[in-house]
Design a protein around this nucleic acid. Structure first.
Length: 458
DNA sequence: AGCACA
């Protein structure tokens, strides 16, 4: 019992038939899981693609001893458990059975429920959805709606076969970027079967279509008053600018506080308000500037950059629909910098940073070879590092990372850490002179492979 | 790299 050594923590949990596996490759299949676990016993249930990164899973053995044998084996093995060459960490789950594994969403039907991750409703138009799914057969009807899970669409095919073909081909993939709005960096598709068999579409509108009934009335109010991105003539691209930026923070290994964001975003102008919140398991933030131009410059300069080197806390910026945030003046999730802070000058607001020990924009060399193992490697951020307003000299000395351009969503962790320096950081002056919104050029749909598959990003 | 709710 007294196994001395570093792995003793593995035994601190009470054994369970259910094992919790983490650090799996993204979208690890059930087959791969079973392959890994079946040498140790009979697997009666699994739950894959769990967690925000879909890189965790649960495996339930028929017998407790089988689970124990697997944990024990890898606890003492010199070779770690691996899937696709990635070390998998195994521990006992704190639950004793996997519940609800077979959801209704696994029962095939002719209607698919598609969840588009990491996008705002309206970022993906119904035309694009139609285009993407038409590659597998005639799409009868589409209804889109906003749920807590995100932006969702019900897509009705003629039959189960067509629907499952589309599901198999597209589930877990991303809509090719050239079909997306300029500011939309990725659109993962999560697809399950709906229990519906026939959708009841009442109007042709920006959120619902019935392609079997061209005479269906067009909802007269459906297209106007629509705050979502304005559709271009091709119905595919265009975005609405705003003085408020929405930042989706990817790969958030460090705490991101309002003050950290303030430091980063103040480089381009006065930051008025900041709000941080969780959405769909991802941390997002709203950053309010006084005007659209400042927001636009900031957005162009910071998009895709990471707050910390190594690709941590990577920012994806879009324009928010908000124009004026209503936030608590001083909480751990929000700040209103427009409210005069008695006894505190604006530049002194850095005085209390309980949770922001890492230095944004730190010199990459400083951390080279030091994978982030906590906050220790980063120097505490002091007032001297605060950037209250634009200062070219600071910007010149500031080095930032940008991920390799070909980094696809979901592969972020799997890709080599080949990050590239932005050798000439974008200065606001340059950014202003360059177009704020790129041309709405869209490659023709024919550019997609006929099967509609090769073009989709894994 | 640390627990599942759609």
């Amino acid at each position: 019992m007294s196994t001395s050594g570093q792995q003793q923590f593995r035994y601190t949990q009470t054994p369970s038939k259910v094992l919790h596996l983490r650090n799996l490759p993204w979208e690890c299949s059930e087959e791969e899981l079973i392959e890994l676990c079946k040498p140790f016993g009979k697997i009666v249930n699994t739950k894959c693609n769990v967690g925000a990164n879909r890189n965790q899973a649960f495996v339930e053995f028929a017998d407790l001893n089988q689970a124990i044998s697997m944990v024990s084996y890898y606890a003492s093995s010199s070779e770690p458990a691996q899937v696709r060459g990635k070390t998998v960490y195994i521990q006992y789950s704190n639950r004793h059975e996997i519940v609800n594994n077979k959801s209704p969403g696994d029962t095939p039907g002719n209607v698919l429920l598609v969840t588009m991750e990491d996008v705002q409703p309206g970022d993906v138009t119904i035309e694009v959805i139609h285009l993407v799914f038409s590659a597998f057969g005639f799409v009868h009807k589409i209804a889109t709606f906003e749920k807590a899970a995100g932006f969702q669409a019900l897509i009705q095919f003629s039959d189960v076969e067509t629907a499952s073909a589309a599901k198999n081909a597209l589930d877990g993939r991303s809509i090719p970027r050239y079909l997306l709005l300029e500011h939309v960096t990725s659109c993962h598709l999560r697809i399950s079967y709906s229990a519906h068999t026939d959708l009841n579409i009442k109007f042709q509108s920006h959120r619902s279509r019935d392609y079997t009934n061209p005479y269906l009335p067009v909802n007269p109010t459906a297209f106007e008053g629509f705050v979502q991105p304005v559709l271009g003539t091709d119905g595919i691209k265009k975005e609405q600018e705003s003085n408020v930026l929405l930042a989706a923070i990817e790969n958030m290994q460090y705490a991101v506080t309002p003050d950290v964001l303030h430091t980063v975003f103040s480089a381009f102008g006065t930051v008025q308000k900041i709000a941080i919140f969780e959405k769909n398991g991802q941390t997002q933030a709203l950053i309010q500037y006084p005007d659209v131009t400042t927001a636009s410059v900031s957005k162009d300069a910071l998009e895709g950059h990471s707050i910390y080197d190594g690709g941590y806390c990577k920012l994806h910026l879009t324009y928010s629909r908000h124009t004026d945030l209503n936030v608590k003046a001083h909480s751990d999730k929000s700040r209103d910098y427009t409210i005069p802070d008695s006894g505190m000058l604006p530049g002194q607001q850095t005085s209390s940073y309980p949770t922001a020990p890492a230095t944004p924009w730190q010199n990459p060399q400083a951390a080279a070879g030091y994978p982030p193992s906590g906050y220790g490697t980063a120097a505490p951020m002091g007032p001297q590092n605060q950037v209250p307003s634009w200062d070219p000299s600071l910007q010149a000395g500031r080095q930032t990372f940008v991920s390799v351009p070909s980094t696809f969503p979901g592969q972020t962790f799997a890709l080599s850490p080949g990050v590239a320096y932005v050798s000439a950081p974008v200065s606001p002056a340059q950014a202003v002179s360059s177009p704020l919104v790129q041309s709405s050029h869209v490659r023709p749909p024919g550019a997609a492979s006929p099967a509609g598959q090769a073009a989709y990003y894994r």
